[in-house]
Amino acid sequence: MESSGLLEGLEGDAREQRAELIPWLLERGITPEQIANSYQPMLMASNRFLGDDGTRYSARQISDAAGLDLELLKRVQRASGLPRFDDPDTAMYTGVDRDAAGYAKKFMDLGFHSDQIVLVVQVITEGLARAAEVMRFAALEAVSQPGATELDLAKRSEALLRNVSPLLGPLVDNMLRLQLLHMMETEAVSTAERAEGMLLPGARDVTIAFADLVGFTKLGEVVAPEDLERLAHQLTDLAREVAEPPVRYVKSIGDEVMLVSTDPTAMLDAVLDLVDATEAIEDFPRLRVGVASGQAVSRAGDWFGGAVNLASRVTSASRPGAVLVTEAARDAIGDEERFTWSFAGARRLKNIKDDVKLFRARRAKSG
């Protein structure tokens, strides 16, 4: 083992632990070269259950095997956010990379064009990267114990991944199917769009709402980062709870959440419920909400356009605990008996050309 150089640069306890780990890895068919090239040898055995058997492929090999254009492969790899290598003949990619390229080729054969494939990969990556980070933390927490050695961690992580890895594919597949079903139901093509032959969602009339936590930045000066993260996650959970069709949760941006709906009345109900839910939590930061109706475009799971920008600016003008609604949204909601209104003035909002008339919405008191 000394002559192999696998202990080079290690001293003391770290050297002893690595010397204990290496024979166990070799027994599992992992080669000295693979161990030497690994950043985390203790996780090599468990990584095999995630599709990394230690074999490496070049971009050209993957391109040739999948029948996928090399330039498109580079774009897909760039969209995935994972390490890339400019030399197409550098053998640094795993079997998972190879399989992903094969799926991209299958999508092309089904009629998807390259830009669509790259966009799908990018959006999926953004969501799964967060999921992977949470799962990594949970997995390491499950196998870590005080005083654990590299060999202890390697054995426990291998045992965990042996049972977890078969569940990952079905889990992601099921969640994606649920999201697609929900999207198909809530993003129905309108009569006007069908008449115009619009196969892709274009600009449409929707109601957008943003809600953010008041004083979140200042709170970060006195509250631990993990507590801030907990508050942000709690807001996201509450927003998802109130977002029942036709209201849809779009995303969270730090201390802010975004919702969209084709029904302005349903949206107002949802955000008032959200404010009530946060007010009921002891020591939870107060919420401010802005709602605007108008034209917006859906792309890659997000929304863009005038209504989005306006709702964001209205939120910034709102006071703690208040729900401010633009005149267009107020008119679209009409005189619903379960809401009361007060005129909040005509405001000059940043990057908005004209003054914007705003109304504060409240839940009407029963009885």
Results as ranks from 00 to 15, higher is better:
residue 106 K to W: 04
residue 128 L to K: 04
residue 110 L to R: 13
residue 132 A to Q: 08
residue 116 Q to I: 15
residue 135 M to A: 15
residue 107 F to Y: 08
residue 50 L to K: 01
residue 122 Q to E: 09
residue 105 K to V: 12
residue 98 R to L: 14
residue 53 D to E: 11
residue 93 Y to L: 11
residue 132 A to L: 14
residue 67 G to S: 09
residue 124 I to W: 04
residue 141 E to T: 15
residue 58 S to H: 03
residue 71 E to T: 13
residue 81 G to S: 02
residue 49 F to A: 11
residue 101 A to V: 07
residue 123 V to K: 12
residue 72 L to R: 07
residue 75 R to D: 10
residue 113 H to K: 14
residue 97 D to W: 09
residue 122 Q to G: 03
residue 50 L to W: 05
residue 64 D to V: 15
residue 67 G to A: 07
residue 68 L to D: 01
residue 70 L to D: 00
residue 105 K to W: 02
residue 77 Q to K: 06
residue 88 P to R: 08
residue 91 A to Q: 04
residue 62 I to M: 09
residue 140 L to G: 00
residue 64 D to A: 14
residue 117 I to F: 02
residue 78 R to G: 01
residue 103 Y to F: 14
residue 137 F to L: 14
residue 51 G to R: 06
residue 109 D to C: 07
residue 128 L to E: 00
residue 115 D to A: 15
residue 65 A to T: 10
residue 133 E to N: 11
residue 77 Q to C: 05
residue 53 D to T: 14
residue 111 G to H: 06
residue 72 L to W: 02
residue 136 R to D: 07
residue 73 L to I: 06
residue 122 Q to A: 12
residue 142 A to H: 11
residue 144 S to G: 05
residue 106 K to R: 15
residue 89 D to T: 12
residue 139 A to F: 02
residue 138 A to H: 09
residue 136 R to N: 11
residue 78 R to A: 12
residue 92 M to R: 13
residue 118 V to F: 03
residue 77 Q to D: 00
residue 125 T to P: 04
residue 120 V to D: 01
residue 104 A to K: 06
residue 130 R to V: 15
residue 101 A to S: 06
residue 137 F to M: 14
residue 89 D to M: 12
residue 63 S to I: 09
residue 119 L to D: 06
residue 86 D to E: 11
residue 50 L to E: 02
residue 83 P to A: 01
residue 136 R to H: 08
residue 55 T to S: 10
residue 110 L to I: 10
residue 134 V to A: 13
residue 63 S to H: 04
residue 138 A to W: 07
residue 105 K to H: 06
residue 68 L to N: 06
residue 59 A to L: 14
residue 61 Q to Y: 02
residue 88 P to C: 08
residue 108 M to E: 10
residue 114 S to G: 06
residue 142 A to V: 10
residue 102 G to W: 08
residue 95 G to S: 07
residue 113 H to I: 15
residue 99 D to N: 11
residue 107 F to W: 11
residue 68 L to Y: 01
residue 89 D to I: 10
residue 108 M to D: 05
residue 90 T to M: 12
residue 140 L to D: 00
residue 57 Y to K: 08
residue 106 K to E: 13
residue 143 V to G: 00
residue 105 K to L: 09
residue 101 A to E: 00
residue 104 A to H: 03
residue 83 P to K: 04
residue 59 A to E: 03
residue 57 Y to I: 13
residue 122 Q to H: 09
residue 87 D to L: 05
residue 110 L to V: 09
residue 92 M to T: 12
residue 112 F to M: 15
residue 86 D to M: 08
residue 110 L to Q: 09
residue 61 Q to R: 10
residue 140 L to Q: 06
